[in-house]
Design a protein around this nucleic acid. Structure first.
Lengths: 285, 285
DNA sequence: CTTGAAATGAAACGGACGTTTCGTCTATTT
DNA sequence: AAATAGACGAAACGTCCGTTTCATTTCAAG
């Protein structure tokens, strides 16, 4: 028993919890150092006590004291936590994907195919995370939140996105209308959209002509258009008021929908939340 | 000009390529050290020249020579490549997700919502990658490859999966039939399935009763059933010949479909490939 | 077999590292 | 206001690091 009243953390999360919990009882400089370490875990993993203490604006000895205060032998044992955190973490999806493509060429097992799709999906997620501008989401959410009815337009490979969106929006009690071509009436359906509504269109290269055409129609009617597509040169981007560029990686000829789905759900949840906070936004009621 | 005939690598991939390319012209010990480093990149990132040289079975000076041979100043610059590889790589999706849930509680920006969905999707992918048994995929692929027609059964939140599968299978020229309830004829549709066909059913808790019922119907008819669901106790798992457990993380009440989509596409591409290799499998033609 | 250059092993070296020590400062208690 | 214990900064210390040096071995060419 060391009479500290707590166990010395055995992983990064435990350390984080302990620091947050005792933040107020920590000496000033120790707290300052701890805050820096939690905010820059990567630096801690690779840096030296000297370099880190300089960055954090404290003395090297403070880091030692911090470590010992939390029950570690010294800075080195504390740093081991930060290193352990990075370890085991698999290589980036980018690497894994190129690795898969290289080897074997043809006859790869089914497990490799799964690896490929998982890697492609992960890469798409990473790419979206890095490229997206938060302000753009805000604008799109704002636009959609004002709509009476949200029209959903997507065909072929993108159709599942519209489908999931319809499900999500209905769950969130947001009036929506999927523009479906199964009855051959999609042009008529889209013609019902007014400037008080909004259109959310999804299309990737090669763009389905019908989707482009109908999005153009809606835009000409004055209906706000939010587009999810794959390039600034996409014809969909030209007619949209706000558009998102999502680079979905593909594998075996089929594109992942992971990032697109995540973005679509974000818009759905975001607009529902916006309406909840400002009920005046909602077209009806 | 240093007359080396190549540029010193600026990232891990470039180094890897260079080593592979010149493997045969490398001195024995240097090659030995290089092989170790490429095989244990994490060790290199964190270790010291002394510890690594011991693990690789060479002298510390060999590592320096290796580094200088490839145009680096010394071991430290070479190591920087390995560290850079780990850097920037974000924390695990697990961490990111719990981090998002913790802070703010309510009023998180739209960007945070996207982060949440991306993290949930990524976590689902990671989880599937770790948990899945390759042999199970092979069995499912084999079963599906033998089918004349593949019936696709999914409702509500899972429906987009069936939808994308229908698209993918058709593209791959695999006969398929989505069991659609929009015309109120789903029970009739599924009754067309014979033991020479196969059913691919997708359902997550709370299971849509109709999906379970119809899957049971098909199984009773002797149609092979492959299921994608979320638990060993799922009613869908009970009636399936092969079933997959996919743990999709959710965020804001909506589950990611990323892992499910990846698995579904794997089955589609896998079965198409199996038929291509053994045309006798294909029911028709 | 001789020769010479490249490769390798072993040890030495300076510098930076983590840690310890110690004197000063701060803030609370009496 | 004095006493005192903890917090803190600065410098000193010993260790281990990356690197260099140099002697030895290996191997191919003549």
């Amino acid at each position: 028993m060391d009479g500290q009243g707590f166990d010395t953390p055995s992983d990064f999360d435990a350390l984080k919890r302990l620091v947050v919990e005792r933040r107020d009882t920590l000496p000033k400089r120790i707290a300052q150092a701890a805050a820096y370490m939690l905010d820059h875990p990567d630096e801690v993993a690779f840096g030296t006590a000297a370099s880190l203490s300089a960055s954090a604006g404290v003395q090297p000895s403070t880091l030692i004291r911090l470590a010992q205060l939390f029950g570690f032998d010294g800075f080195t044992s504390l740093q081991a936590l930060f290193r352990h955190r990075m370890r085991g973490r698999n290589g980036s999806y980018e690497e894994r994907l190129s690795g898969l493509r290289g080897e074997g060429g043809e006859r790869a097992g089914n497990a490799a195919v799964l690896q490929g799709f998982l890697a492609a999906s992960g890469k798409s997620l990473d790419s979206l995370e890095q490229s997206l501008d938060p302000a753009q989401i805000d604008r799109a959410v704002e636009m959609l939140a004002r709509a009476e009815t949200i029209y959903l337009l997507a065909r072929r490979r993108s159709y599942p996105v519209a489908n999931y969106l319809a499900y999500a929006l209905s769950k969130l009690q947001v009036r929506n209308q999927i523009v479906d071509s199964s009855a051959g009436l999609s042009a008529e359906t889209i013609s019902f959209a007014t400037p008080r509504d909004a259109l959310l269109a999804v299309s990737f290269s090669p763009y389905t002509p019908q989707t482009i055409e109908e999005a153009r129609l809606a835009a000409a009617n004055g209906t706000p258009v939010v587009a999810i597509t794959d390039s600034a040169f996409s014809p969909l981007a030209q007619v949209a008021d706000v558009w998102f560029e999502v680079a979905e990686a593909d594998f075996g000829g089929f594109r992942s929908l992971a990032a697109t789905m995540a973005l679509a759900l974000t818009l759905a949840v975001g607009l529902a939340e916006a309406r909840r906070r400002r009920p005046s936004l909602s077209g009806k009621e």
